[in-house]
Amino acid sequence: MTLRILLYILIGASLTACSSHLEVILPSSGKIGLQESNVEKEKIAQFIQPYKDSVQLVMSEVIANSDLSLESGRPNSLLGNWTTDALFVHETAYVRLSEPVFCLLTNGGLRSSIGKGTVSRGDIFRLMPFDNEVVWVRLPMSSLAKIESYLIQSGGEPISNAKMNQGKLSINGMNDRSTHFWVITSDYLANGGDQMSFFQDAVERLNKKVLLREVFIQACIKQGTLVTSNDKRIY
């Protein structure tokens, strides 16, 4: 009896082993690099060409000039100040603010610098390739400390209409009677992107349905020559 059971087990085991009849050949490398020297498929290159032409036409349009090279950086940067100022002006120019408001973006979200000289539409697309939209988030005062510790830990992110002195964030218009404040940011960050978990405390949220990139493009066109600020906002 015992022998019989053992035999069944053995047969079962051998069948299982046999069932794996197809196997991946594990190579030392499973990928082929596409180098500069690789040849293009002519038909595909020709198909792409008209799309490429229209992309180049749109992207090469000069929309502003810059006297300086704007780079991102921590704790403060010309690029961080310019982008958050452009956002703040765009969003608040025609609004009466009843509560403190400031802008917050991230260095990580600014994907490219703006070089000295002409600024093209393509430069702004490289700066902000993602279709992130502008969002206003209303937070209770208790969230301020979380933002402060985030900024301390990261070493500083772009802000506008606020300063942080020795780890204490003060938003213009903020006083003892303030119970809430607003943060103007991107939907990506407001959704908790880049570990911004403090946005979970939101008591209200306005989705502005405006692309952040479009805000920057409009700022370029309006300013003509980029209006830059080398304010030390985090110190």
Binding site: C18, S20, H21, E23, G33, L34
Partner: peptide, 17 residues
Amino acid sequence: IYLGQIEVSATHVSCRK
């Protein structure tokens, strides 16, 4: 930047399930 390439081959064809 890369195209992945994985090769699958038959081994124990005779006793497949």
